[in-house]
Design a protein around this nucleic acid. Structure first.
Lengths: 206, 206, 206, 206
DNA sequence: AATGAATGAGCATTCATTCAT
DNA sequence: TATGAATGAATGCTCATTCAT
């Protein structure tokens, strides 16, 4: 609501965003009341509405921020990589690394995606991530490295594998993100079959 | 609450379950009130609590029913298939067919999975589906048809691809479920690469 | 909110309307909370919203009902009166009688008229009252009994005198409504001057 | 709160009073928050409470100022007029002129009159206006120019006509105030009947 | 004089659940 | 079995007012 924030104000704002994101992820958006948030922070209820127009607006901001942050990281990771398959691998790896240090945001995104009110927002972010990946998938096809299919389908399948294994390996099993990424990459490259020519040589930590 | 239901009572019950499931899927569980349900059915509020202990209990029943139904269908489809890869393909294909005629249940399951209160329930159902698939994955590995990795990881990756492409191709694009399934199978079999020996010969409709 | 009300329900509804109207008039609409109303009636908060969509909706209903009631009474009083001036007098007299037994509704109408949200509603009711009076004013002009001016202006002036003297004589001084009406009629007929030919012979109760 | 204001401080104060008066009149006192006022003026919230003890106190000051201003103007207009009826006419005319250039204050007074908290204040101002008019009404009666009735009733009736026609002709129809005043005067002088001897010769501007 | 931040009681409204009939 | 009525805790949000700087 206020136009310009002081340094103190900006700290408060960030504090609320961070606390709320974790609480939403842990207890659920609907189950977390504004009262829970402000009480948890030990501030008055008015503080919340000083910084955010509504509870919905806060979640939207969290979601947009999270997706923007992940996207930015992915672009950086891909930037210097000429090989299409390696680009895709790098993107997957970045996702796992980002996710493992932002588990709450991952869970929150998954949650929001199933809520009519936020579905479009999350979906839009995903579409952009998919759109980012599309050129590389196409380039891979043109270079004969990737089998021909609708690139959109390929991209969504990769997203599905990433999401699914992130939940299993990172959230539940708390595995190392780079090792987990390698397994997702392996599946995306050759599915259940043995490595074909599409297999890239992983540049992971080990 | 009631022990035994008359024939009429059973119809009412089923009617409520069906209406509620669609409403929950369309508008969201939290956004759908018990009043919405009973008003939509043109009955009094007492009816609801005659048949169900609570709103939560109703959703749980819907979820369990849905997962049981899908699982039963998958078992039937797999029963006569000796080849491990074909079993997996058949399971995927069954999922797509079931999903395409139960889109609301698919969406509801996705939704419930992100809700703390129902997460364990849905997860438990998924674990069973994964458990069902596990022997086939292992058999495939033993037969040298599937590369060696943690079978659980493979199973979850397949689940991720299925879920992701079901949403894209069935829910959003309303594609034919068997064609959609073939694309998911293709990805699961060989990822982005060209079909290796792991590729099964599809036995789809065409 | 409910479609059909039982006898009991209708009683409750009327009870709420009546209690709220008096409370609104006494303490002010804004100053009276829904909690005040339900506590005053000794019922739960949900009861209010079982019968009314909102606090605003309740006030609107009170206002419309009040204006409809007054209008109906005025029409009855005028029905058998052939003389234009006597019709006007009868309408004024009816207003005073109605007002004296519905002081709270009078005050509430005055209050609502100054509230942006209800202004149009009240104004619309007044316009109808004025429209009811217009033909008689015109008839009086045509018959040479009323001086020529915009009938709308005349009608509003009469309304102004009625409102103003009702507040002074009925609300504040608690005078007899018929005597009070006679004073308003006298002013409307000849203003500050002595009775000219426009003076009607009062047919008041005494 | 502050005892003495600097020149700049006085300007601020006047600025707030003026802005708030218009906002209150346009949107309603309750609907206008202190935040609305300070934001509309582009100043901080503290400013408001530097100059005014409370929101209520501000409105009270606006109301008192408005009534004092109108009263002062009426006294000036009446000062040199010996004829009782002409005095009354002059007062009515002054009201219309003042109202037409202070529509927001007129509306605000009407609004405040229906609010328990401000009723007494506004009423007190009106009583003083009535008290101002009373001697002239009495003088008119003594001179045989005005029919005998309770002067208070006559004065309130005049006030009612003025208020009612001001709303119709000035606020709604935006008529010329002097022409509008003439119509109010005509009604006050002879009601609906033709001009008797009570009719004064209007000394309006034209 | 002025600002942005903070307070917290209060408000309208919702809704799962219970109850009398 | 079924209904309409009732409950009341909880929620998101507002806003007059105060405070630290």
């Amino acid at each position: 609501m206020p136009q310009r924030l002081t340094v103190r104000g900006n700290k408060r704002r960030t504090q609320i965003i961070d606390y709320a994101a974790r609480k939403f992820a842990a207890d659920g958006y609907h189950e977390t009341s504004v009262a829970d948030i402000v009480n948890g922070l030990g501030v008055g209820k008015g503080v919340f509405y000083w910084y955010f127009e509504s509870k919905d607006a806060l979640l939207k901001e969290i979601l947009v921020d999270a997706q923007r942050d992940l996207r930015r990281k992915q672009r950086q990771a891909i930037a210097d990589e000429p090989d299409p398959l390696r680009r895709i691998s790098a993107a997957i790896r970045t996702s796992f690394v980002w996710l493992s240090s932002n588990v709450h945001l991952f869970l929150l995104l998954e949650q929001a995606k199933t809520d009519e009110r936020f579905y479009n927002l999350v979906r839009h972010g995903e579409e952009m991530a998919v759109a980012d990946a599309l050129p590389h998938v196409k380039a891979g096809m043109d270079a004969g490295m990737i089998r021909r299919d609708d690139p959109l389908v390929i991209a969504h399948a990769i997203l599905g594998v990433t999401t699914s294994l992130a939940r299993l390996l990172i959230v539940d099993n708390k595995e190392d993100p780079l090792l987990a990424a390698d397994r997702a990459i392996a599946f995306c490259m050759s599915g259940v079959s043995f490595n074909g020519k599409a297999k890239e040589r992983p540049a992971g930590i080990l």
